[in-house]
Design a protein around this nucleic acid. Structure first.
Length: 379
RNA sequence: GGAUGGGUGGCCGAGCGGUUGAAGGCGCCGCACUUGAAAUGCGGUGGGCGCAAACGCCCCGUGAGUUCGAAUCUCACCCCAUCCGCCA
């Protein structure tokens, strides 16, 4: 129909030029135009209802993903480090923090709300040091490029990374503008190449970024909320990769071991767990979690989740590269993983490194950053 | 936040509402000249989707509108530049 319209329109131009009679032709075209308008409307309506259905469908899972509905279906892949043996009952991190004045929950509640943390003194310095050390570590040892993105994201970015509509009720939204507080640096960093055709020879592209992360944690009320275990705002160093499709599952293994090397270097007891079908996030096809053991609360704490999102995000964000072998454009695959999330790592450090006298030793790799070997009461 | 100017192909830059998918230049590719290169000359050269191909459709920041017909007119929004205001 469009083709017909185009051809007839050219006729109008020609006839007008030569001064021929064209009122009949114009009438015909008026009708054609009306028909096209109606059909277009139908097409748009149907396309919209199709996308409304499609956008709620998560990424398809890799065949290797173990079956399961909850945490118990996850597979422990490997573990490392070891829990120190204590000659005294190890304290939970909030007790240690209280004695060492590392954060102040009462005052942070006063100035903001529960779930937001005011770090103080060595607590603040430990947080800042960890961020710097992790970013430096990934840049120096794993070839990442450092980014410092905005902490605010727009609707397209949230949608393109698969956070909308799925994650909608977990994000903080601005009342007076169409923006969200970023729930993870995965979002701004993954969307940074939206609409671009990436150079094949630059892949894999590896970015490391720190952001504060904001989550409403709606529905999680009362569960593991003590101390640093679950916060509305937390710091996280994130790893993001853009890779060729054929490399993405290998790169997931690399990404996971790069994140793992952080908890290993901190000499924390940890495990790497493969998520089962019921535990994998909306955008991912395969994922690993890294948990560290915190003896004070006697729990495994999740500090990283590493996901291969295959082409789920790159389709939504239209991020492609030209395959040199075929000459065709293909969607890149995207991966993301925490490298790693701070609060639970801090909790695990405090609890694993505590001493009988209430002091906490500083992990060896952080000593150059903190400039002390030990955090002691009154220091 | 206010004012003004602007968003066109890999880049720069033209574009009376109708042979404009888009002049010109740069770049790139091919050929000629050259021992080789540079310079010069001639020719070619936007992208996406579908297709074996022919061919077709879509694309001039985004969206809506006016019109038989929009890169070109109207409106809204986004982004960039400059100036003013405010502010770390």
């Amino acid at each position: 129909m469009r083709a017909g319209q185009n051809r007839r329109s050219e006729e109008v131009a020609r006839k007008k030029k030569s001064g021929e009679e064209l009122s009949a032709l114009l009438n015909e075209l008026r009708q054609l135009s009306e028909q096209i308008r109606e059909q277009n409307e139908q097409i748009h309506l149907q396309a919209d209802s199709i996308t409304r259905i499609l956008e709620k469908i998560p990424n398809s899972l890799h065949h290797s993903v173990p079956e399961g509905t909850d945490e118990s279906g996850n597979l422990r892949i490997r573990s490392g480090g070891s829990s120190p043996s204590f000659s005294f009952p190890p304290l939970p991190h909030w007790e240690l923090a209280k004695r060492l004045k590392l954060f102040d929950l009462e005052r942070s509640g006063k100035i903001a709300s529960s779930g937001f943390i005011l770090y103080t003194g060595w607590g603040a310095k430990l947080e800042r040091s960890l961020i710097s050390w992790m970013i430096d570590f990934h840049c120096q040892h794993h070839g990442y490029r450092e980014l410092f993105p905005p902490f605010v994201i727009n609707r397209d970015t949230a949608y393109g990374t698969g956070k909308l509509p799925d994650f909608d009720d977990q994000m903080y939204r601005f009342q007076n503008s169409d923006l969200y507080l970023n729930p993870t640096a995965e979002v701004p960093v993954t969307a940074l190449h939206a609409g671009e055709t990436l150079q094949a020879d630059t892949l894999p592209l590896c970015y490391v970024a720190y952001t504060a992360c904001f989550r409403r944690e709606a529905g999680a009320a009362g569960k593991d909320t003590r101390g640093l275990l679950r916060l509305h705002q937390f710091d996280k160093v994130e790893l993001v990769k853009f890779v060729r499709p054929e490399d993405s599952y290998l790169e997931l293994e690399n990404l996971t071991s790069e994140a793992e090397s952080i908890v290993a270097a901190l000499e924390l007891p940890y495990e790497v767990v493969e998520l089962c079908t019921g535990e994998i996030g909306f955008s991912a096809s395969k994922a690993y979690d890294i948990n560290v053991f915190a003896p004070g609360v006697n729990k495994w704490l999740e500090v990283s989740s590493c996901s291969n999102c295959t082409n789920f995000q790159s389709r939504r964000l239209n991020m492609r590269f030209r395959n040199p072998q075929t000459g065709k454009l293909e969607f890149v695959h995207t991966l993301n993983g925490s490298g790693v999330a701070l609060p639970r790592t801090v909790a695990a450090i405090l609890e694993n490194y505590q001493e009988m006298d209430g002091s906490v030793r500083v992990p060896r790799v952080l000593q150059p950053y903190l400039q002390v070997e030990r955090i002691q009461p009154g220091s």
